[in-house]
Simulated assay, not measured.
Amino acid sequence: MRRLARPKPLFLILLTILLVALIAAGQHLRLFERAWFNFNSLWKPIDEQAIALDQYQVMVEAQVIEGLDDDVSALTYDPVRKSLFTVTNQDSELVELSLDGKVLRRIALIGFGDPEAVEFISEDIYVITDEREQRLIKIHLDDETRFLDAADAEQMTLGLHMSSNKGFEGLAYDSVGKRLFVAKERDPMLIYEVHGFPHQNPEKSYAVHVVNNPKRDAGLFVRDLSSLQYDERSGHLLALSEESRLIIELDINGRPLSTLSLNKGRHGLQKTVPQAEGLAMDDDGNLYLVSEPNLFYVFKKPQRDL
Rank of each mutant, 00 (worst) to 15 (best):
E185T: 02
S205N: 12
K204V: 02
I137Y: 06
Y192T: 15
T145Y: 04
G170W: 05
P198R: 00
I121V: 08
I121P: 03
D130H: 05
K178C: 05
F147I: 02
R132C: 11
V118H: 03
G159T: 11
D130R: 02
D143A: 11
D124A: 07
G196P: 08
F197V: 12
V210M: 13
F181N: 12
D142G: 07
E144R: 07
V176R: 06
V176E: 07
P115M: 02
E131Y: 10
E169D: 08
V194S: 11
D130K: 05
I128M: 03
M189K: 02
P202K: 03
G159K: 12
H140S: 09
E119P: 14
L180K: 09
H140T: 06
N165R: 14
E203R: 05
E169C: 03
D187P: 01
G196T: 08
L160E: 11
Y192H: 15
L180S: 11
D124Q: 13
S175I: 05
S122D: 14
S122Y: 08
L158V: 14
S205V: 06
V176F: 11
Y173G: 00
S205H: 08
E131P: 12
F120D: 01
E203A: 07
Y206M: 13
L160S: 06
K138I: 13
V182Q: 13
V182C: 14
D187A: 15
N201I: 03
F197Y: 13
D143Y: 02
E131R: 10
I139H: 02
K166C: 00
K138P: 08
H161M: 07
D149F: 03
R186Y: 05
F197Q: 11
G196H: 08
E123V: 14
D114K: 15
K166N: 01
A183I: 11
D187S: 14
K166L: 03
G170N: 10
H199K: 13
Y206S: 12
P198T: 04
